[in-house]
Structures are given as structure tokens and as C-alpha cells.
Amino acid sequence: MKSLNLKILLGAVELGLIFGVMALGVYLTFRILDFPDLTVDGSLTIGAATAAVLIIQGYSPWLGLALAFLAGGVAGMITGVLHTHFRIIPILAGILTMTGLYSVNLRIMGRANLPLLGTDTVVDSLRSLGIPAQYGWVVFGLLLAGAVIIFLYWLFQTELGLALRATGDNEVMIKSLGVNVNGMKILGLSLGNALVALAGGAVAQLQGFADISMGIGMIIAGLAAVIIGEMLIGTRTLLRALIAVLCGSLVYRIIIAVVLRLGLQTTDLKLVTAVLVVLALTLPRFGFKKQLLALGGWSRASVEKGN
């Protein structure tokens, strides 16, 4: 077996950090709000499309990120309104928005794939600070994901944030305490999808293109990160739960890098991800620690054989 070289590992960490922001958005809707939101596949793409178009037209890549964030916020808001005001069940509300976004995203991009050749990225402005190019995206990813974690940690402890968390925990109770739960759901979905689109805007710059199909399956990738993180690190405190999501995203991307290295095709990744989520969901039920040790032993053995 070919070993994981530094470059591949670095690439996985870059993706893990940037997609970690997406996973934090998924965590917000799925876990905090307890809303199975499938808007994600569309809002990641709308973020990438928005940023790519702006950058191609010569605007600052930072502005691209900011507007990607806003576009995702609007997408989440639509899902929220579909659910709260038109009384459509959460899953369907998300699917409807996601489906509609496919056309919207094509309109924004003008065609199915937009390459970003020779354009500036947010990381180029970091380079002037003296950060070596090789680590530019890792540093940017750390800063972005760190800022999002700090922001969410702060938000969750404000009056508004407490009400948001309570909305996902116990709707009857928080209603009886005078909170407009519809407003909270719209707010949470909006913020969650804004984070997803922010990640999309950064991913487009990192990968050098925006593609109409780049969002497909992203909801499951985000969930994989959330669940892997919860399984490995736990959710005992709020901060720990947030950091767990980011670590889950890193682990997920490294696993993906490893399986690619083992010879699977990129087209196999969706299956790998689905299997990962199933494993992460079911392992804890069968005494997870033991299973993990067994798995660890198994993979170590196979690595040794490979050597």
C-alpha cells in the first residue's frame, strides 16, 4: 500500500477544515434545531456559484464569501418559511428548496461548470502576511472554522441562542415561555445554511471551480462529520460538541483520502460515505469502544501486511 504522503494529508486537512464549516451548519439545523434539513445540497452550491461568479467578474474573493453567506441564508429562510408558514414537513421543505436551487444555481453560473483560472482567492491575501503558500489553506481553514466555532459558542449562550436551543429541545415548553418558535426555526435554518454556503464559497476558491453538481450528497457528508465527531469526542459540553463536529469533519476527510489511496474511485465515495454514516450510527449500539479497538487492530494488521 502506498503511504499517505504529506501533500495528500494536507489536502485532506484543508478540505476537513473548510467542510467543517459546512458540518457546523448541518449541526446547527440537525442537532440544535432538531430539523432534518436537506437544503444543504443546494445551499453549498449556491455559495460556490455566488462566490465564483463574483470573483470572475473581478470582485474581491472576500466579497464572494460574504455574499455566498447571504445567499445561503436566504435559501435556509425559504425552507424555514415553507415549513413554518406553509406547514410543509421538514424533509419535504428542504427537498423543495434544494430542487428549486438547482435551477437558481444554473442561472447564477450561466453554465454547469465555472473554472476559476488565475483568479485571486482569499488565501492570496493571507500570503502577504508571510504565511507559506503550502499552508495557506490550512491556516485559512483553521481561522474560518475557529471563528465559526467561537461565534456559535457565543451565540448559543446569548438570550436568543438559549431560545434557539430550547426550540430544538422542547417546542411546547419554549412556546409557553413566550418564544415565537416559527421565528426561531427560520433564524436557525437561515444561519445553518448561511454557514453551509460560506463553506461552498471557500470550497470553490480552494478547488478552483464551481460545479452545479458539487452539492450532491453533501448533506450526508456533513452528517457523517457530525456523527463521527460525536462518537469520537462526545457532546458533554457545548464547546466540546462544536469542536467534535470540526474534528469529525477532519477524520471524515482523512478516511476519504485513505480509501482513495487504497484504489477506490471518486465516484465510489458516496457509497463509502453512506457506509461510514451507517457504521457511525450503529457501532455505539454494539459497544463502540470494543468495536473500534477491533477495527483499529484490523486496519493496523492490514497496513503491516501492505508494508
Binding site: 449562550q157 446569548t158 438570550e159 436568543l160 438559549l162 415561555l177 413566550g178
Partner: peptide, 14 residues
């Protein structure tokens, strides 16, 4: 959460 019943909830520390 109960302490804020009937009041608007903002971005102040809870």
C-alpha cells in the same frame, strides 16, 4: 429562559 418570559430576547449574555 424563564427569566425572559414576556421580554424580547437579544444578543446579551443569557
Amino acid at each position: 429562559l424563564a427569566a425572559k418570559r414576556g421580554h424580547s430576547r437579544g444578543l446579551k449574555k443569557g
